[in-house]
């Protein structure tokens, strides 16, 4: 029973972080029709921001705030320098962002070396949950992720900004005719999506080894979640990440991580065949 509870908590932890990463991807895709292949590297940058600041002797909490801000800034720069020029060429945006991911990854290798770095969590206490102990920091990660995901839903469905952003998503040209600056929304959403990835990277850094290849390990499940859940609705990645993340962590802990990847991947491919636009649907033709 204890074992099952721990498994459930670990799965929930993984799912929530994937949701954070996938949500940034889906927001950018929904608004700009851009598939950001550099999203994993934005996650990486978030983690390395924390590494850098902790090595400089700055507290974890400063790093946790600085990471999304800095990575959001990087996102803004990417949008301004690269995406803006080619967003009407769909395949080329995938490739250009993927080129950016190579640049960021190699830049990190040049600055920090190819090896793994480590960061320390701000607290290491174990909490007692129904008789089994669980690291408090993992609960903190879940809290942060839940808070940010809920905040994003609030932003998009309960505020004027969200209403306008959804208008741009629904029909870009009409929204522009109604006087909404689609450029401003592009900038804002790209930066916001990037900041989500940066936050996810920073909050995950203390419980994993931080190395230049870590981005891909979060990018792929995030993408599969979107393909399974659907890209037309913010709920899509949440549902997809729930299915993908839960299957992955349960299979990994009961059998092996490699088998888990194979199972998750097979599941995603079959899901694409049954639900061509994702379980929640694409939302538009």
């Amino acid at each position: 029973m204890d074992q099952a509870l721990l498994l459930l908590l670990d799965a929930a932890n993984y799912v929530l972080v994937i949701v954070l990463v996938a949500m940034g991807l889906v927001i950018v895709f929904g608004l700009m029709r851009v598939i950001n292949m550099a999203h994993g590297e934005l996650f990486l940058l978030g983690a390395y921001t924390l590494v850098m600041l902790q090595q400089a002797g700055v507290s974890y909490w400063v790093g946790l705030v600085a990471a999304p801000l800095l990575v959001g800034g990087v996102g803004l720069l990417m949008e301004e320098l690269v995406i803006r020029h080619i967003y009407h060429r769909f395949l080329d945006t995938i490739l250009a962002t993927w080129g950016l991911s190579i640049i960021i990854k190699q830049g990190v290798i040049l600055l920090f070396g190819p090896g793994a770095q480590s960061t320390t969590a701000p607290f290491t206490a174990q909490l007692d949950l129904l008789g089994s102990s669980y690291p408090a920091y993992r609960l903190f990660i879940m809290g942060v992720a839940l808070f940010v995901v809920a905040g994003t839903f609030y932003l998009f469905f309960r505020t004027r900004f969200g209403l306008a952003a959804r208008a741009v998503i629904a029909n870009r040209d009409t929204a522009a005719c109604l006087g909404l600056s689609t450029r401003a929304f592009d900038r804002a959403t790209f930066a916001y999506g990037a900041a989500l990835a940066g936050l996810a990277g920073a909050v995950m850094a203390p419980i994993m080894s931080v190395d230049p290849q870590m981005g891909l390990g979060f990018l792929i499940p995030a993408f599969l979640s979107i393909l399974v859940g659907g890209a037309g609705h913010l709920g899509g990645p949440v549902l997809g990440a729930g299915l993908i993340g839960a299957t992955d962590s349960v299979t990994a802990s009961l059998w092996s991580p490699v088998l888990a990847q194979v199972v998750v991947f097979t599941m995603a491919v079959i899901a694409i065949r049954i639900f061509p636009t994702g379980i929640l649907g694409g939302g538009r033709k």
Binding site: F29, I35, F90, L224, I226, L227, A231, I272, T277
Partner: peptide, 12 residues
């Protein structure tokens, strides 16, 4: 697949 504007192949 029709999600993500037909980019399934690339990503999968």
């Amino acid at each position: 697949g029709r999600g993500l504007q037909g980019a399934q192949l690339a990503i999968v």
